[in-house]
Amino acid sequence: MTDQPNLIEMRGVSKHFGDFQALKDVSLDVKLGERVVICGPSGSGKSTLIRCINRLEAHEAGEIVVDGVTLTQSQDSLDKIRGTVGMVFQQFNLFPHLTVLENLTLGPRRVLGLSEDEAKARAMLYLERVQIPDQADKLPRQLSGGQQQRVAIARSLCMEPRIMLFDEPTSALDPEMIAEVLDVMTELATSGMTMIVVTHEMGFARRVADKMVFMDKGEIVEVGTAEDVFTAPKSDRFAAFIKQILNH
């Protein structure tokens, strides 16, 4: 892993919401193929951090470089970076008026310029990968939460991104559906996808994370391999957080 180039470089990134400072001088590197799990209490800035990577939030200070492209206000850098980065949301954010298949083919057809047949073939490929090809013609609301989130993952994959961002992908799910989504994410991790995952699923983090990042109050408090930070957390705050999560 160490000899891989950096796919994402964040240097001194800051962000305010009004008077509240969501990110304080945050720096983080993610290498090609690396799986990074970010955890931390709510309001710690972890979602804001990954939302800055594809500019769903605009950072105020610092530098973000994704796959060699520096993120600025320019539409050009934005198009390049959003083409490289896929994102999965806590609330799925599927397009409710479109069928599963239409959700998946919209981007490939309109953005990548694929023909309808090509886009459909690609969509079916990724639906098989998330194990719900039989739901292609249904509307999102006819699916369970777990199925919807898997469709959302497939929708992102259809754009063939190099990096996948997951913003608390299982937080809105009933417990019995969390496993099916984590399984798909684990499979994706095994295939070599570069991933940044904001989650409280510590079992998943231990299994797949190359790097654990613990955030609190807008800062990165601790970074390390999953094994190191779980067995011997260096900071008191992280130790307290892990204890809370594992005990409840």
Partner: peptide, 10 residues
């Protein structure tokens, strides 16, 4: 909905 659309570069 806007964010999802942005995330697939529409």
């Amino acid at each position: 909905q806007y964010e999802a659309a942005q995330s697939i570069s529409l």
